[in-house]
Amino acid sequence: MRLLLTSDTHLPTRATSLPDVLMAAVDEADAVIHAGDWIDEPTLDLLESRSIRLIGVYGNNDGPGLRRRLPEVAYAELEGVRFAVVHETGAAAGRERRCAAQFPDVDVLVFGHSHIPWDTTAGRLRLLNPGSPTDRRRQPFCTFMTLTVADGKVYDVTLHRLPPRR
């Protein structure tokens, strides 16, 4: 099963649309995970319409409409891999320890907020932050992630760097 991970799309404040490369990857994915800070409901509508399966949460910048439609934390089991999705995990220092304690029955925690790509482990918990496809902040590139899950394992985690916007 092919998964696409994204977060912090911040439309229309940071960009007017999602990058074509990201949308092509959405079309190829079996499931899309969005870790919050959508900002507008049309982005949620777009990803719902283009995704085979969409798993998403709201972020700190998301208003009442998105908060009515999305949970703060989402859980899903995909091909035997247990996922949790949340927007914020707190400070980078101690993140792995805190998240392993907070999500003891999860294999992969997908999070956002910082716009900083992240791929670490805490025991058997893997923590993934795909960065942002529209707002790189202090990062050199806008990014998103893809991975494959099968038979209870995670394979081929790839951070995709997006070309600069014109």
Rank of each mutant, 00 (worst) to 15 (best):
A25E: 11
L66D: 07
Y58M: 03
L47D: 03
A93S: 11
T43H: 02
A31T: 13
I55P: 02
M145G: 12
V110L: 04
L127D: 00
S132F: 02
D135T: 06
V73A: 07
S17Y: 08
R95S: 05
T6I: 10
G63V: 01
R97Y: 14
A35S: 10
M145F: 03
D30M: 05
T134S: 09
A100R: 15
R161Y: 09
I39F: 13
Q139L: 08
R82S: 10
V26P: 01
W38G: 05
W118F: 09
L66F: 10
G94N: 02
G80C: 05
D62W: 00
R98V: 09
A122V: 00
V32M: 06
L11T: 07
E48C: 11
E72R: 14
I52E: 09
V21T: 13
T120W: 04
F83I: 05
T9F: 00
G90Q: 01
R68V: 00
S114E: 12
E88S: 12
A93P: 06
G56Q: 03
A93E: 11
W38K: 09
L5M: 09
H113G: 02
L128E: 14
R82M: 09
R69F: 02
T16G: 11
R97N: 12
D45L: 12
R69E: 13
D27G: 11
L22Q: 07
G56R: 06
Q139M: 12
L44G: 04
R138C: 07
H160A: 11
A100Y: 00
C142T: 12
T134K: 07
I39K: 04
W38L: 15
D45N: 15
F144H: 06
I39Q: 10
D40A: 13
